[in-house]
Design a protein around this nucleic acid. Sequence first.
DNA 1: GGTGTCACTGCAACCGGTTGCACGAAACAT
DNA 2: ATGTTTCGTGCAACCGGTTGCAGTGACACC
Lengths: 322, 322
Amino acid sequence: MAQASGVHVSTVSRTFSAPHLVNPETRTRVLAAAEDLGYRPNRAARALTTGRTHNLGLIVADIANPFFSHLIKGAQAHARTRDYHVFVADTDEDPSVEEELIQTLAKQVDGVLLCSPRLSNRVIEKLHEDVPFVVVNRRMKGMSNVLMDVGSGAREAIAHLVSLGHRRIALLAGPAGSWTSKEITEAARSVPGIDLTVLGPNSPTEHGGLALARPVASSGVTGVLAYNDLMAIGLVEGLTSLGVDVPGHVSVVGIDDIVAGRVSRPKLTTVAMPAEAAGRTAVDLLLQLVGAPVTPALATLATNLIIRDSTGPVRDALRGDP
Amino acid sequence: MAQASGVHVSTVSRTFSAPHLVNPETRTRVLAAAEDLGYRPNRAARALTTGRTHNLGLIVADIANPFFSHLIKGAQAHARTRDYHVFVADTDEDPSVEEELIQTLAKQVDGVLLCSPRLSNRVIEKLHEDVPFVVVNRRMKGMSNVLMDVGSGAREAIAHLVSLGHRRIALLAGPAGSWTSKEITEAARSVPGIDLTVLGPNSPTEHGGLALARPVASSGVTGVLAYNDLMAIGLVEGLTSLGVDVPGHVSVVGIDDIVAGRVSRPKLTTVAMPAEAAGRTAVDLLLQLVGAPVTPALATLATNLIIRDSTGPVRDALRGDP
DNA sequence: GGTGTCACTGCAACCGGTTGCACGAAACAT
DNA sequence: ATGTTTCGTGCAACCGGTTGCAGTGACACC
């Protein structure tokens, strides 16, 4: 490449990384040769001296969860506009895989987006020494966070159930180690005047929800708030097949607002989470951390309740039923 | 690191990349020091000399499409067992973004999994000179391919419609440039004795399907095969809101078997595609290509029809309706 | 004409490993 | 005792860029 354009390698290097330092004529010549040979600076080699790989790591519990795929999409699209690539990795909800992945990624990326981690705070803090982090969906002191205001969302959802006359309410918790799950639980507990049953922890999948149909049906609750839409959908499926009508006998609210919730019947009432925006915001915070270690920032994104058909007024026959 | 264990860097290097060449005692000492310092060989630096980055690129049109997210999950999990990482990139259905991404990835990865490309064969062939490929969902001579037997799937789906009495059938094509879409179209055209209307190309999303509700309703067809489940679901939504009953007036079949199809009402009849298996197979073929340029392989995965509630017998009143 | 400035480019060290080669010591053969 | 392997390790070049420093030539100014 250098010889193809008749200049020293360092001039080629500068043509790409500091164009203003090279004579316009030379630059044109180098660029022409590059175009000709299909040459592109090798990012890995560049990373060796600059210490910047121009790659970001993104770790999620489950790529197939639509919430995460939208987050990824947002992060990826945004990163691309900043000339960054995103390494996506899926932990399969396994904390030890999560730890392993962070360690492996640490040296290959400039920063990591850790989404809905299942690891303990202690481990995350230790790993944080190796690489800049932005943690999504978990409050961590001393690091940049992107949070959804899921507490308000949960309270809003429960207020909605209460306004429909529901008093006996079940909360379907998410996986152990999930900050969001804890947050939702606390929010639900803080609502006065209801009789709350917390079920879980559970696998945050359709299957996890399905498995809860029987316990929910036999618990006598009339309203349910699920950790996420996938679980809510599974629960509705299970309840229906048990002959329990939704929302006739039981009202169900999910969280996330995934497509499946809009097309399932009854259409799912849910707390919408701004997944794409979260992805974009997280990339912003991370890049600003990568540039120069500034004070960690905290971004909180609003959620909002979308009322559809899976919630309805409590039936008189059931009101006060033990 | 080298001085921490009192040996030369080359010995450290060999401890990790060719352990049998170093004295067991020395090895133990080096490993202990590594453990102590949290040292891990830098993959980027290693890639510089070995030419192996131990990274794979994976390019899809839309991460948020559940079909792709399962494929990614399969690929990723499988790659990890081979000590490979996967770089996932989303083209947003844009061919020029796709080309750009392949070029950028080319030097950073050992091979690329190109899924459901929208680029022309010619461009793909050109890009193939730069980096090993496995193309998923497109037959490309001279490269390794992973295909789904979507032609059989489409024929099976149409046979199912025919067996229910449908003769006037619409095919909702996918995006321009999609091999799968072309394959389905050809398969449908090859079925004798039906009156086929092909609509498209269309955006392969829920929205794309929704937009086709009116044309479908006014076309007088009684059976529909959609390019994918997302479109089928959108179509059902649109038809329902137009007062057209599914499967009463129109039967609808999707392709992919995504979760949303199982929970939407009516439950979607669909051609299941083995997405995770495709991801795993593609990684296998790619790694075998990376090792030594062998003859390209072709893997064809079976599809199968899953009959649910969105298809039913043609109604007498409509039979032969113009 | 001498000298200082400036823009541009080459030189060479370096990033963190890998690897062919050489060398010394121990083990083995004669 | 001497010659030959074998084993383990160090040396140094190299991968493909980046970057501080120095050198060159053109030009302006005195």
